[in-house]
Computed example of a mutant assay.
Amino acid sequence: MADEERNQMILLELVKQPHNSVCVDCGAPDPEWASYNLGVFVCFNCAWIHRNLSNKVKSIKLDTWEDSMVETMKSNGNAKAREVFEKAVPYYFYRPLPNDSTVLREQWIRAKYERLEFTGETKYPPPSYTRGFYEGLLWKKGKEKTQFNQRKFVLSETEFTLTYYTDDTEIKAPKAVIHIKDLNAMFQPEKIGHSHGLQLTYQGEHCTRNIYVYHENSEDIVTWFNCLRAVRFAYLKTAYPTGSNDELIPMITRNYLKEGYMEKTGPLQSETFRKRWFVLDAQTRKLFYYKSPLDAEELGAIFIGPGKNNYSVKECVPKSARGNKWKYGVTVDTPKRQYIFMCEEEKEQKEWLSALQQVVLRRMAPQDYASKLAFIVVCVAERNV
């Protein structure tokens, strides 16, 4: 057997081993690439980033491998690499998933192999996300206007707050002081229109508020993200003192389960259908709707309880409707009202049905009851305004 064929067979056997069968960096299954100077198996997307870092990358199926390269892969592998490069990853530090944005994936890889942040060696100065305090300038979208302006943000673990100012000297009073208790951060590059776009969401006095920001530098925006996660994790440790790290980590930050446009009618189901941007937050069990994707404040929200409490989701065709251009219907039944939504395409309808049913089928957790209570209080406050 030729050396090339033998080497490829060895690589194909190595990548079947449990610790090598997923990408070492993002966890994508069945990696088909490898870095032979690091001795790790990676997916195509991570391989592209490694190549930009000047790591030696080859396809395990399409490229020719020399004996010395294969020996490196045999003597290393993903498990050994993690023991070295991920020895001291903080619990709160975000590990990217296969479908995450490029900026998260790239900065995770750079932090591991280029900056060697997780080898357990003492660094000076220490990484920003370990200090409990962070400040800097971010480009922030105006509440009513579409342009972005630089604003100074200050994050404090001592106060559990994120504060931002219109004046970077902090002479003027802060524009907003956001308690970390209600804060969520998620990358939204396509939605914001910038590869480093970050959406910050928190509970305002009477509604959910959104802040859209970005930083020109990719390392800085990911540092902000992990600083926010560090402070959120510290808060959760005080709010849920008996919670394990595995229980708290999913609560630090989360992505929305589903976003997109649907048409919505009023409570009588005879009102004109209006196009709205919907967001399903599975953790809070709320379906928010906005006039447009980058609105700062919600138009309304619907709490999605479990099936045993008389909540249900199903496909429908409305009996009568005015103004609707779309024909693929979704019905959400709650104990007090039935909601009718229309999707433009059947694919969207199926995705919304699947996402909503995931929430309906999930049992109520203790934090869900707190979320529902807060939701009821806000609704009562809005009626009294």
Results as ranks from 00 to 15, higher is better:
334 T>A: 10
294 L>D: 00
334 T>I: 10
273 F>H: 14
365 A>C: 11
338 Q>F: 05
365 A>P: 04
360 V>H: 02
357 Q>L: 09
286 K>R: 15
281 D>A: 01
346 E>C: 11
256 Y>L: 13
295 D>Y: 02
339 Y>E: 04
358 Q>G: 13
290 Y>R: 08
353 L>I: 14
340 I>V: 11
372 K>S: 10
296 A>V: 02
335 P>W: 11
280 L>P: 06
282 A>Q: 15
348 E>K: 03
356 L>T: 05
344 E>H: 14
322 R>T: 14
356 L>R: 04
327 K>D: 06
291 K>G: 09
342 M>E: 06
262 M>I: 09
340 I>E: 03
282 A>E: 15
272 T>D: 06
297 E>D: 10
282 A>L: 06
340 I>T: 07
261 Y>K: 05
354 S>M: 05
275 K>M: 11
318 P>M: 12
346 E>T: 08
342 M>G: 05
328 Y>W: 15
333 D>W: 02
312 S>R: 07
326 W>M: 13
362 R>A: 06
344 E>K: 15
347 K>N: 07
292 S>T: 12
286 K>F: 02
300 G>M: 01
319 K>Y: 10
368 D>A: 12
310 N>H: 11
308 K>Q: 09
264 K>L: 05
285 R>L: 03
336 K>H: 13
351 E>W: 07
290 Y>L: 13
370 A>S: 15
263 E>K: 09
313 V>M: 03
343 C>E: 02
293 P>M: 04
258 K>F: 01
343 C>T: 08
277 W>P: 00
265 T>F: 06
258 K>Y: 05
375 F>V: 05
375 F>H: 15
342 M>D: 02
256 Y>I: 00
358 Q>D: 14
334 T>Y: 10
283 Q>V: 03
343 C>L: 09
350 K>Q: 14
327 K>Y: 04
281 D>L: 00
363 R>V: 04
331 T>M: 14
368 D>W: 13
329 G>T: 08
335 P>R: 13
357 Q>E: 12
295 D>W: 01
257 L>Q: 05
375 F>L: 08
265 T>I: 06
306 P>V: 02
315 E>S: 15
344 E>P: 13
270 S>L: 09
356 L>E: 07
302 I>R: 01
318 P>N: 12
353 L>E: 08
333 D>M: 12
337 R>A: 08
303 F>K: 12
289 Y>D: 01
259 E>G: 03
309 N>C: 09
258 K>H: 15
354 S>P: 02
272 T>C: 09
317 V>P: 00
268 L>E: 14
329 G>Q: 10
263 E>R: 08
288 F>I: 00
359 V>F: 06
313 V>P: 04
353 L>P: 04
318 P>I: 10
299 L>H: 06
262 M>H: 09
333 D>K: 14
321 A>K: 14
275 K>N: 12
366 P>T: 04
308 K>R: 08
311 Y>L: 08
271 E>C: 03
328 Y>I: 06
311 Y>M: 04
363 R>F: 05
283 Q>D: 13
302 I>F: 01
341 F>D: 00
323 G>F: 08
346 E>K: 15
326 W>L: 11
282 A>M: 10
336 K>L: 11
368 D>L: 13
315 E>Y: 12
